[in-house]
Design a protein around this nucleic acid. Sequence first.
DNA 1: ATGGCAAGCTAAGCTTGA
Length: 253
Amino acid sequence: MDIVSYNVNGIRAAISKGLLNWMESRKADVYCFQETKAEASQVDLSSFELLGYKHYWFSAEKKGYSGVAIFSKKTPTNIIYGFGDKDYDKEGRIIQADFGDLTVISVYIPSGTSGEERQAYKMEWLDFFYEHIAKVAKKKPNLVVCGDYNICHQPIDIHDPVSNKNSSGFLPEEREWLSQFIDNGFTDSFRHFNKAPHQYSWWTYRAGARANNKGWRIDYCMTNAPLQTRLVDAGIEPTAMHSDHCPVWVKLK
DNA sequence: ATGGCAAGCTAAGCTTGA
């Protein structure tokens, strides 16, 4: 099972930059997308269907904002759109697909960069999400939680940990939250296989950051403990250029 | 310390993003 997570920063923009051709050659079993910034009805779905993908969308109430989706070769045995919470579901940030005994979640954790209010919301959201995942994990033994976490875990995961020590996405309380999430039974699959520094999944569009690899690793494929023996490999794919993020992936046997 | 780029809404500039 080859699972890819990709914050596409607007799926319509990504399509115009060749997302379909990339998906066709990448041939993943499952694509978890974030920041689709569209309703399914705004996209030519037949082009994805021609590639053999079923598609499931959970969009925000606000047009052109946020939104997650799961695309898969196999038809899921079950799909859950959102948390099942009226308030937390307004921004379209989580979708779950079960494939038999394997459960895949695509999540887009809020950014806290646009001000104190949104940072506070992010922290509150993280607590809610943590409890939600704990509940899902009780029912679903094999769980992959893919997405844009908007948090760098360790100094190795960011190009400049010193100047960013007060930046949203690298705050001590966010990093501590991610440590607890991992301690509670999840594996950062990329770090499990790759110990090297300078491996990122997001770069600002500004100031040639990507060309200079001045990035952040904020996208993760987290796998729970029962999947440990099924981990085959994990990686990031910075050559895919349809977004300010790049795809990250995990392979399970 | 500041600014720098892009997507999308809505129709020139605003919001959000990290």
